[in-house]
């Protein structure tokens, strides 16, 4: 029973990281209708920036996270402006291939700057732990921070898209770019802001991820990136609550599958569940097929 609880908490914690990454995928997809496969590598850049800020500049953890967010935000805007904006009218395939290109560019640049040797990410989120059931269930501060960060991000994003002018404009653009443009909404700027938000979240995810799994190398972002993309599709791509739900479920399935079924097959189980869900709900769990009404 206690071990089940432990897996459950670990699953929610890992799922929270997936969810934060998935938000970046889903928001960008929702608004620009493109899959930004370089998103996973922005996570890696964020983690490296935080690593450098702490190890070389000896900045306090919070400041290091803010640095990583600032750099990733700028990176996201630059990637969108240089690589994707010129392709706004191009075919989806051209955009997809560009995204894969940007992904390799980021990985190879990271290798050039930081070398391929793995770095050990400092444990910046360790402030102790809560021990329950006479010490048989340990919840670390890092787990708590991860889950709390996820909840806060979800609340802030919901408020942002529901209440602010920019947030509403983002929803308008995601539904109909032409109509949004006719309202006076600057579509390009709105897409830029979306990339900025997604990339800032990627930086947070990078720090959370590397605090839990402290090996940092140029390919660190790829697998979590792909899993978070899966989570976004699982929950219904384009849907913010869907990314949250998909991320959490993916984390839970992965950890529980590894614990109770097979460690080796953990990832296979994750993707098998995805296939089954998509067979029955092609738009994902919370994805809604667009209604057409004349």
């Amino acid at each position: 029973m206690v071990s089940f609880l432990r897996f459950l908490i670990n699953g929610i914690s890992l799922g929270s990281v997936y969810a934060i990454i998935a938000l970046g995928y889903t928001m960008v997809y929702g608004i620009a209708k493109m899959l930004n496969f370089a998103h996973g590598d922005v996570i890696m850049v964020g983690a490296y920036i935080a690593f450098c800020a702490i190890s070389y500049l000896s900045l306090p953890p919070l400041l290091a996270v803010l640095c990583a967010m600032a750099v990733c935000t700028a990176l996201g805007i630059i990637i969108e402006g240089l690589a994707y904006r010129p392709l706004r009218q191009a075919s989806k395939l051209a955009v997809l291939i560009t995204a894969i290109g940007v992904s390799y560019l980021l990985q190879n640049s990271a290798q050039l700057i930081w070398s391929a040797n793995p770095k050990v990410f400092p444990s910046i989120l360790n402030f102790g732990a809560i021990k329950l059931f006479d010490g048989s269930l340990v919840i670390t501060s890092q787990t708590i921070i991860t889950i709390a960060a996820n909840i806060v991000i979800m609340l802030v994003l919901t408020m942002f898209t529901g209440k602010t002018k920019m947030g509403k404009a983002m929803r308008a653009v995601s539904e109909d770019k032409g109509a949004a443009e006719l309202m006076g909404i600057n579509v390009n700027r709105t897409i830029s802001v979306t990339f900025a938000i997604g990339s800032a979240l990627a930086a947070i995810a990078g720090v959370l991820l590397c605090s839990a799994y402290p090996t940092l190398q140029p390919t660190t972002g790829s697998m979590p990136g792909i899993k978070a993309f899966t989570a976004a599709v699982f929950g219904g791509i384009g849907s913010i609550p869907g990314a949250m739900l998909g991320g959490l479920l993916l984390g839970l399935i992965e950890i529980l599958g590894k614990a109770y079924v097979s460690t080796e097959l953990g990832d296979a189980i994750v993707f098998a569940v995805l296939i089954v869900v998509l067979l029955f709900k092609p738009a994902g769990l919370l994805g809604k097929p667009m209604r057409e009404k004349v």
Binding site: K165, K168, A169, R171, A172, E175, D176, G178, A179, A180, L182, M183, G184, I185, M290, R291, K293, V294
Partner: peptide, 26 residues
Amino acid sequence: MALCPEGRRVFQQMTVRENLEMGGFS
């Protein structure tokens, strides 16, 4: 100068009020 486009193109998933607010975006 405002265009009310063919096929209406209201923002289907937004409320009536939000649609109007978007109209006043400028």
